[in-house]
Structure formats: structure tokens, C-alpha cells
Amino acid sequence: MRSAQFLACSAALAVGVLLCGGAYAADESAAPLSTADDSSQTGAAPSGGTAATPSPDAAASTSLSDFVDSGRLLLTQGVSNVEGASGGGLASWAVISGYETNDAVGGNAHFTYLNLPGYTVRDFGGSVGLFNRVELSYTRLQLDTGPTGGKLGIGDGYTFNEDIIGAKVRLFGDLVYDQNSLLPQVAVGVQYKHSENGALDEALGAKNPDGVDFYVSATKLFLNNALVVDTTLRLTKANQIGLLGFGGDLNDTYRPEFEGSVGYLITRRLVIGGEYRTMPSNLGFAKADNWFDVFAAYALNKDLSITLAYANLGSIATFKNQDGVYVSVQAGF
């Protein structure tokens, strides 16, 4: 089972890399074409006077590179988080997946592993960014109880599985360009979440195996200070982001929760920072704590980035102080 997951993940990563490679290859092959296209027209430009521009982009020749440009700057998509959305490790941000500009599409595949004293969390999925405007994502989240399962009476290695389908729309603002104002990049998102352990969730007090989260994110890059800051407001009923179902015996209404992240750019490739995320505590049998992490995300290039973090998820299903090392690899274009 586990090896199958790794295989699936490896395949996803391979696809991501292949897509990337394809994109770059297309770029190179397209370049001579567009040069040729332009050269016939640009001859007039120098003598032509002011707005006699060289041929506007080689629109005539449509190629893959027109749709896959990887044209945004390094790290400006953030990284894929535990819910499959672009952001930090735990929080969702207003950035859109992929390195595409407004003329193209992009995307990512990711695999995340979090080793806790009582559990192992695995998370793999993918996302697509459309025109730096819309993000669609899917991720499969697993909480493997290992020996803890036996202590909980559900059997060693019992694994909670959750599917998360997300959509996010950037409303206004640009992370990079808006350096002369305080305007952040703002996006709204929705996440449909399905827990596969409905019967157990219910036995634990949850009201529903399915739930929908709504959030609004504002992300601001302060280039002068090499700082990126995000604040997100989320309406949710999710217990442990949905792994233990939605709603509970203590509360079954939407509550506003907060996610905040601060990152410092050490170089163009490396950002370090921390995140904090408040969680509802709907289940009487087990209190849920707020989450936090400190992270370092490194982009080898636009194809591949790695995130390392220390994450603390507090108490999960009565097992306290669940903290450990978070590793995430993401491949895309």
C-alpha cells in the first residue's frame, strides 16, 4: 500500500517534470520561429518612428510556449500546502499555482510527508493554474495512526483518508508589481472535503463526513524589506482540516478561523518563515489545538522546489504534542 502511494507520487512528479521539460523545449524551438516572424516586419520599426512597434508578438505561430510560459518569477506561486492549495505549508495564500502569466497555464504535483510522534501524515496531489487567475487543486491527505491506532482501539495502522478539491480565484492585486502601494494580492477560495471514514468520524462525534471551507486570502510582498506576509480568514467546520469529519457534538456551525504567514527572502530561491493557523474544536472527546510551523522553502528552479519545516499540530485525537518534521517536494511549471 505504501509503496503504491510512493509510486503514484513518483509518477506524478515525473509527469510534472516531463511537462516542464516539454515547456522549455517548446520555448527554445519557438524562439527561432518568432524571431523569423518578427524580423520581416521589424525592418520598418527603426525608421518608422514612435509607436511603429516591431511586430506585436508572433501571434501567427501558435505553439505550446504560448500557453505554457513559466513566465512568473521564482517562488511567486508559493508552495503547495497540506490542503493542496498554493500558499505556505499549513496556510493558503492568495497566490495562484504554477508559474504561468495571465496568458498561459501552469501547474504542480506535490508530495508531502509529516512525521509526528503518534501519526504519519502523507499528502499528495496536484494543481492547475489558469492565467494566473484561477487555481484548481486536488489532494489526498492521509493520517496514518501506526501503533497509535491500536491505543485508540481502531487497530494499528488505521489510516484516515481525505480528498480535498479546491478552487481559488484571484480577485485583484499583484504580488510582485504592486510595490508602490500597500495593495495586497487578494483571492477567495473554496474547498470541498470528503472524509472516507464517515462511520468512525460519526462515532467520534462528527456530524458529517463531507464539508466545504470558504476562505479569503490577502498576500503582500514587501520587496524593499524582502518580506512576504499573508493573512487568511477561513470559514470551516472541519475537524483536523476534515480528517476527522465536520462539525461535532460541541459545535456544528461555521466558525471564522485565522491563518497567518510571514516569510523572509534570503535569496531569490530561499525563503524562511513561520505560520500560525487557528483550528475549531468541535469534538468533545478530543480537543484540537492551533497549528504552527517554521519553514524553509527552496526553489531549485521553476520546475522543482523543496520545503522543510518544523510543524506543531498540537493535540490530535487525544494524543498531545504532535510535532515533527515536515518535508514537501513539488514539481511543476
Binding site: 514612435t50 509607436a51 512597434t53 516591431p54 506585436p56 508578438d57 510560459d69 513566465g71 512568473r72 518569477l73 502569466t101 495571465n102 496568458d103 498561459a104 494566473n132 531569490r268
Partner: peptide, 19 residues
């Protein structure tokens, strides 16, 4: 830049060259 039809990808490519 009027009439040049520049796109974000052009702008960003230049930015990367500047970096």
C-alpha cells in the same frame, strides 16, 4: 510603450535578465 503589445511574460523575462 504604447502600441507595443507587451505582455507580462516579456516584462518578467526582462526582470529575470536584470536579476
Amino acid at each position: 510603450h504604447q502600441g507595443m503589445g507587451l505582455r507580462n511574460r516579456d516584462f518578467n523575462a526582462l526582470a529575470e535578465d536584470m536579476q
